[in-house]
Design a protein around this nucleic acid. Sequence first.
DNA 1: ATTATATACAACCGTTTGGTTTCATATCAA
DNA 2: TTGATATGAAACCAAACGGTTGTATATAAT
Lengths: 112, 112
Amino acid sequence: MGEAQAKHDVFQAIADPTRRQLLKLLAGKEMPVTVISSHFPMSRTAVSKHLRVLSEAGLVKERRVGRENRYSLDPQPLQEIKEWYAYFERFWENKMAALQFFVEADRSDDPV
Amino acid sequence: MGEAQAKHDVFQAIADPTRRQLLKLLAGKEMPVTVISSHFPMSRTAVSKHLRVLSEAGLVKERRVGRENRYSLDPQPLQEIKEWYAYFERFWENKMAALQFFVEADRSDDPV
DNA sequence: ATTATATACAACCGTTTGGTTTCATATCAA
DNA sequence: TTGATATGAAACCAAACGGTTGTATATAAT
């Protein structure tokens, strides 16, 4: 049935700076939790919980190899971010034209 | 000088669905708090607090007109989002090529 | 002057978040 | 088998979050 999990929102998943670092770290690489957590100034458990959030947002994949759990980036859900802000792009592409136009058009300026 | 406020992170600001709605509502328009809050199923105060967060992230501008406070979108800080995920774009542009390559290269598969 | 409107600000509250420490379990090495 | 390693899970905690109600203040309308 195609569509992955949505238990955690992508926007919320990338809101945390540690999780954004995790995504960069795992881009194109695959590493187990202990190696990953050695890059962060917090406990392994804390990193593991961040990985869980990313996983629930579909942003990382887990692969069990022996006793270790290897994580890697799955960038696909980031498309949602792209599509979201694409909507706003037209508002700065010609900021000095279109935006001003809209604002002026709506401006009545008589307080009430 | 120059650089605006950073009291609130852009990533965190857009993490909340209500705030994302607010941004869409204010895109190209300018409206006072009461009108804005009429679009939401929560108190005016709650909406006002969301607007504050957006303002601290630089995503909306406030303009006082008489007794009302008119808000409008300032899309500029969204550039940061664009730049951020641009980094990841190369990981899905040729997902079946580059990503596979990296993963395979790093894969040792001997547990320990 | 009085009243109504638009808004901010402060205090409060339950839930979520990001972290910790401790314990349990599965796998690998001796 | 015994011990080390990799990890998850549970309980706990302080702080932040998203909301509420109540109060104060400035502006506008009568």
